[in-house]
């Protein structure tokens, strides 16, 4: 109380965040607003990437929903949604095993082992799959040796390779938040459920699963968002078959020099990402409401924490 005057600075509270504010306005907000603005422009014909803005037009969006581009956007969303769900299905048992089934002192080591691939160069580990999946490579030979296939594998440059690549690249981003949430669960809650006569399955479904919802949501966001914008994985593994919306944006900027169309596709990509997130949010909200009504006891911490975890990444 008496120390209050000494502690109060003359600077405003956000003073320490000012450098970041300035930085984000100059190098993030302004550029993104510029892209939205550019999406209403028109390329000056014959120029090397000059754009005019009189009049402002919606024509680029009309171009962007033409089949050539729209098919790619649909494919992007399909690969992203499938990839995100696969990450959840593959990653959840791993996170559960790490956080709950193995002794605490082994957890750190296991975690370290999981983090190393994540910290390895993204492009390099994607290219590595070209070696693994090569039709004349080790895996192909081995599968033929053990008689599972009688010809070379032909996975490279297909959608399947892209799907495999994105699951591989983003799986750690699903496992980490799941592990953190599961690790913070009090074992007492599960024990109480058991003591009250719930079966193992019932405890998992009604106690563990609802409590790790924030982790699941964080994981879904952390995987889905970068995955939808990623076109590097597809470019490396998919060949001509692996076209993602991000690649269209890149080629409009780098090759076709049509900034306006590239911007419009980019805005549509962002819009699709937000749309998918909104749909999932609505579904999970409804699901939770139903679950909440079915459950007799309210467990603290299962509601309202999702956004906090999500923003914490």
């Amino acid at each position: 109380m008496h120390r209050a005057p000494r502690r109060s600075l003359r600077l405003p509270k956000f003073a320490l965040a000012l450098p970041s504010w300035g930085y984000y306005v100059a190098f993030f907000l302004v550029p993104v607003v510029l892209i939205i603005f550019y999406s209403f422009g028109t390329k000056i014909p014959g120029s090397a990437g000059r754009t005019e803005f009189s009049p402002l037009t919606l024509d680029r969006y009309r171009d962007a929903i033409k089949p050539t581009f729209f098919v790619v956007l649909q494919q992007t969303m399909r690969i992203s949604i499938t990839g995100t769900l696969l990450c959840l299905i593959i990653g959840f048992p791993v996170a559960y095993f790490m956080a709950i089934r193995i002794p605490a002192r082994w957890r750190g080591i296991f975690l370290g082992v999981l983090i190393i691939p994540f910290w390895t160069n993204f492009l390099i580990r994607t290219i590595a799959w070209r070696i693994v999946l090569s039709p004349v490579g080790f895996l192909s030979n081995w599968l033929q040796d053990i008689g599972m296939r009688d010809s070379n594998i032909q996975v490279l440059n297909t959608k399947a390779a892209v799907q495999l690549g994105v699951v591989y690249n983003y799986l750690p981003l699903m496992i980490f938040p799941l592990f953190v949430t599961l690790d913070r669960l009090e074992p007492a809650l599960r024990e109480a459920s058991k003591d009250l006569g719930a079966s193992r399955l019932k405890t998992f479904l009604q106690v563990t699963l609802p409590l790790c919802a924030p982790g699941v949501i964080a994981g879904l966001l952390l995987v889905f968002i970068p995955l939808s914008g990623d076109y590097i994985t597809a470019a490396v593994l998919g060949g001509a078959d692996g076209n993602m919306s991000g690649a269209l944006v890149a080629s409009q900027f780098l090759q076709a020099q049509n900034q306006a169309l590239g911007s419009a596709i980019a805005v549509m990509l962002m819009g699709s990402i937000l749309l998918v997130i909104a749909i999932v949010a609505i579904i999970s909200f409804a699901f939770k409401a139903v679950l909440h009504r079915m459950r007799k006891v309210d467990i603290p911490g299962t509601r309202g924490d999702d956004l906090a975890v999500a923003t914490n990444g």
Binding site: W21, Y24, F27, F28, L29, V30, P31, V32, L34, I35, Y38, L221, I225, P226, S228, G229, D230, Y231, G246, V249, A250, F253, Q259, G262, S263, A266, L269, M270, I273, T311, G313
Partner: peptide, 19 residues
């Protein structure tokens, strides 16, 4: 703003900065 930065696909950042 931080959240927006985290959810914006990298390609959008990239073209924005180029422009």
């Amino acid at each position: 703003v931080i959240f927006l930065i985290l959810v914006t696909p990298e390609i959008v950042d990239a073209i924005g900065l180029q422009v």
